[in-house]
Amino acid sequence: MVIKLPRFPYLVQKAIFGVMDHEDLFFISLCSKKMKNLVKSVQKVSFNSIEYIVYKIMDDGMRVDAVGKDYVEKFIISMYPKTHQQMSGIESNEIKQMEAVVLYDPLQGEKEAEFINNHILDLFGSDKEYRLETLYLVTVNTRFLKKLKNITITEFNLYDTSHVEGWEEYFSASPNQTFLTGEISLSGKFEDDSKFYQTDTIEIFEDTSISSEILKNFEGQKAYLSCEKVDNSDIIQLMKRWKSNEAFQNLEYLTVKFQNNDLFDANEIKNACEVKLTSKNAPVYQVDN
């Protein structure tokens, strides 16, 4: 028999939603526009307990968790490809809950990921912090992430080379990145004016040419680069353009670590940039108590 949720007084609806998990609320909010608005208004205070929401990209799917201020992760929704077995029982709206999962056609998935992203933004609000993690990807697949909006922190660890094109789309969709970290191996280059270079803080470990490109185009504040090599000319041009106020005016901190120090000739850079050691007769500042 039906128990009519819309007939309950507002305070009772609020109490009922108050004992539901995020994943159940997410599915209730999919039932109708009215229900979505009700969940939003009733759970506004409860959603304040969420520190951030994280999209975890996997080889064949995606999972979304809400991380509370106590740093406990609460599952919201996931998406996986339809297997032959699952396809026999698919609902017309393509949503079938096992652990709150959206099933997608194995060759697609973009529109499902975009739908989840839009619904989550609508439900939890765009002022919340959103993160992306691409942990332990073997088959690098950027099709789920390239339309994700409003993400400000990205952590990627890729075991294989990923084509830059999908990432370029991702950084265009989520341009206001504050922190980007992880191991990455990319084929191709970002556009010179890519939003990737506008990330506030970049910390990457890589073995391709991204670091060289970052040294040319970075517009953020801090960069911690660990790379196989960059050319001395990349560092020299950075120093010259920075000293002459031509570029890198936001830059506050930069480190470049080479995996092979033999490739690095510090004297060439010092000479080209007129770098002088200040250890002798360095100015001493005294601070009075």
Binding site: V2, P6, F27, C31
Partner: peptide, 8 residues
Amino acid sequence: LRIIYGIP
């Protein structure tokens, strides 16, 4: 859910 909770 729509059926159980009578959600139009």
